[in-house]
Design a protein around this nucleic acid. Structure first.
Lengths: 247, 247
DNA sequence: CGGTTCATTGAGCCACATCAAGAAGTGTGG
DNA sequence: CCACACTTCTTGATGTGGCTCAATGAACCG
């Protein structure tokens, strides 16, 4: 494709093996190549509005976005944290059910809605991958419902950090680097609180408490070092065997 | 099919047009017909256990079941309420992520897991419907996350009753009977509390409060009459236009 | 260097949890 | 048909985790 200098080829795409196109072969990718367009949003930009039409189905190539809903009185709840390879939009619906906001700078790989729906129908590899990803999202949403419905503030923070570490290390292939981990929070305290179903203040206090107890270290508010992920997972309410059974 | 007297034909199935088979034609149904088996569980029975293998992919033909997870210390959160035409199990996973419990007597239409996965791959009509249903479930799970994360006890109860009324009237075709509604709670107070992320006591108190305020009437604890669904929806935190805009 | 945004910390209060007791409904056996 | 046990639901009294309100600190930026 000589067309647009700024759009990289699918075969060189960083999320080639994780996005809806993961199972596509070279021929199928060529079709996607022609239909796709890129768009980049700055940090803080709103990508979609709840209740408003959504022209594209899009995949996050890089960056981080939140999926949230705001009640009239201002209460907001984030219902999904979207990272690279996650998708935005719903085949079959013209209207976005949630607000989508770029948390860091976000680059999307987009398809016109009608075009994408045709692609889904005609390409079992896309339909299959889309189903698999949606089932994963459904499990993630349900898991998070347990956190929101039953866990204490401390457990919520610990759960979130634990799940971030897991996503991070899953993305990078290494399944368990062992005890230690370090991560950069993509979210502000406000976005974090909205995700946890807490206030900024409570979230901050729990971060302080976890630091005091030696479960995390915070060189800066956004940077978090976890000396022992197992201990943090236990603080998140997980039984000691859950995923670090090997130790 | 002369095989089993107790299994009704797909064409006569009460959930024919709502389940994963909804888009199938007569030929495809014939294939399902041969592969399916029925099983009925009494109220209270556990259909699947979190972390345990799940041999079948199943659809609820009749009855009501809950999808839940229990933490070691006994805290339980229901993450899904399954009614007729909803499915149980996850194509591609051999292990159940949640506990599934029959709330009322439940009849399932089941397929061996491997058989069903083959059917999904070979039948676009099934794959498509499964995707669509999963996307709906995902939206429902995310909507419920907003309730669990940000709503007061009163709003949670009102939200739940409102959503039950909506599902009921959607299932029966009539989109909005107007203001009035009556329903029989499929859940005990305990199961209800587990779904709302509250205690039994708080749930009961909120029911009492809603009755006191004239938003509901309760001839018996399980039977609920809603004289004005719009008013209840507003108590659930919905802006007055949301779905009863026509008034 | 003031203004702005973001994060932390403190003090007090309130919604919901917990603990405890009754009330109402349901089933069983005499 | 009633007595008794058992489960389910309701109501009351008290405690507490997280929210609210308010101030301060830290980082960034024009």
């Amino acid at each position: 494709m000589t067309g647009d200098r700024s759009i990289p080829a699918c075969l060189a795409c960083p999320i080639r093996h994780n996005a809806v196109c993961a199972q596509c072969d070279a021929t199928e990718l060529a079709v996607l190549e022609r239909a796709k367009s890129y768009r980049t949003y700055p940090a803080g930009a709103q990508i979609a509005f709840a209740g408003e039409p959504l022209r594209h189905f899009a995949t996050i190539v890089s960056g981080c976005a939140t999926l949230s809903r705001t009640l009239e009185d201002g209460r907001r709840q984030t219902v999904g944290l979207l990272l690279a390879s996650d998708y935005i939009g719903r085949p079959g619906r013209a209207v976005s059910a949630y607000d989508v906001q770029a948390v860091s700078e976000v680059t999307l790989c987009r398809f016109e809605r009608a075009t994408f729906e045709r692609l889904v129908r005609q390409t079992p590899h896309i339909a299959g991958r889309l189903l698999s990803m949606t089932l994963d999202e459904l499990d993630a949403a349900r898991d998070w419902a347990v956190v929101l419905g039953r866990m204490t503030a401390r457990e919520r923070v610990a759960s979130f950090l634990t799940s971030l570490v897991r996503r991070e290390s899953a993305r990078q292939g290494r399944s368990g680097t062992g005890a230690e981990a370090e991560l950069v929070l993509p979210l502000t305290r406000e976005a974090l609180a909205d995700h946890l179903g807490l206030t900024i203040e409570t979230t901050s206090r729990q971060m302080t408490a976890l630091r005091r107890d030696g479960l995390i270290q915070t060189p800066s508010p956004r940077q978090i070092r976890i000396p022992d992920t197992g201990r943090l997972a236990r603080a998140a309410g997980e039984e000691p065997d859950a995923s670090a059974a090997a130790l």
